[in-house]
Amino acid sequence: MVKAASTAAVLLFAAAAAPAWAQMTPEGLWRNIDDKTGEAKAEIRIRDAGGGVLTGVLEKRLSKDAKPDEVCDECSDDRKGKPLVGLELIRGAKKAEGKDVWEGGKILDPENGRNYTLRMTPIEGGKKLEVRGSIGPFGRTQTWVRVQ
């Protein structure tokens, strides 16, 4: 009886912990916030593109001044002239060995068309995501919020 109770307790704990563990990944839907105004700008969906490589697509624009048919005029690669909604912003990020950090990929800023070296770190139990874009020693970090 005691053994059955302890097994049930372990299974219950594992079931309760699984959703929390599953959230310690950048995969999911995120809302990014404007650094200057504090307003939500967009929702970005991050997915595994295969082999543990993550990709992120701008799913929804939330800015008051967002135009539904706006394209990436500033992009200089294959994304030039493509609609912002549906645009791949994150490419090639992989989980660093032994850490809850994803790096090695690039993130596009569609406002200026530049690609930055990417580092993503889930924080606060996966409720938020620190997203750092950098060129050399210079960069900036945004905190994105998970959309439930």
Rank of each mutant, 00 (worst) to 15 (best):
D78T: 09
R132W: 07
T7N: 15
A17V: 11
G126V: 07
W30M: 06
G104C: 12
T25W: 08
Q148A: 14
L89N: 05
K60M: 10
L58S: 05
T117H: 15
Q142A: 06
A8K: 06
G98M: 06
G126L: 06
D109R: 07
W21F: 09
S6N: 14
E130H: 11
V131F: 03
R31A: 10
E27V: 15
G38Q: 06
W21Q: 03
K99G: 03
L87I: 13
G105F: 03
K128C: 09
G52T: 05
G113T: 00
I123G: 11
P137M: 12
T37E: 01
I123R: 15
R132E: 12
V10I: 14
D109T: 01
W144R: 01
A17E: 06
E88K: 14
V147G: 05
G125W: 01
I33V: 13
K36G: 05
V57N: 05
C72P: 04
E74F: 00
R45P: 07
Y116D: 02
T25G: 09
D35T: 07
L29D: 12
T121E: 14
D35H: 06
T7R: 15
D34E: 08
V131E: 01
M24H: 12
V147T: 02
G86M: 12
I46N: 06
S6E: 14
G50K: 10
M1F: 12
V53N: 03
Y116C: 01
G28W: 08
S6M: 15
I123M: 11
L84G: 04
V2T: 10
V85P: 02
T7V: 14
A17N: 03
I46V: 15
M1Q: 11
L11H: 04
P83T: 08
E111N: 10
E103H: 13
W102T: 11
P110G: 08
T121F: 02
M1S: 14
V2L: 15
F13Y: 09
C72F: 03
L54E: 10
N115E: 14
Q142V: 00
L118V: 06
V145Y: 11
A18Y: 14
I135P: 00
T143F: 04
R61I: 01
R61W: 00
T7Y: 13
L118A: 09
G133D: 00
Q23G: 05
K80C: 01
R79K: 05
K106N: 10
R119L: 07
M120H: 08
M24Y: 09
D69L: 04
R45A: 14
G98K: 06
G50H: 08
A15D: 07
G125V: 01
K95V: 10
W30I: 05
V131Q: 04
E27G: 08
R140F: 08
K128D: 11
P137W: 13
V85Y: 00
R31D: 00
R140W: 10
G92P: 07
I135S: 07
Y116I: 06
G56P: 02
N32H: 05
M120Q: 08
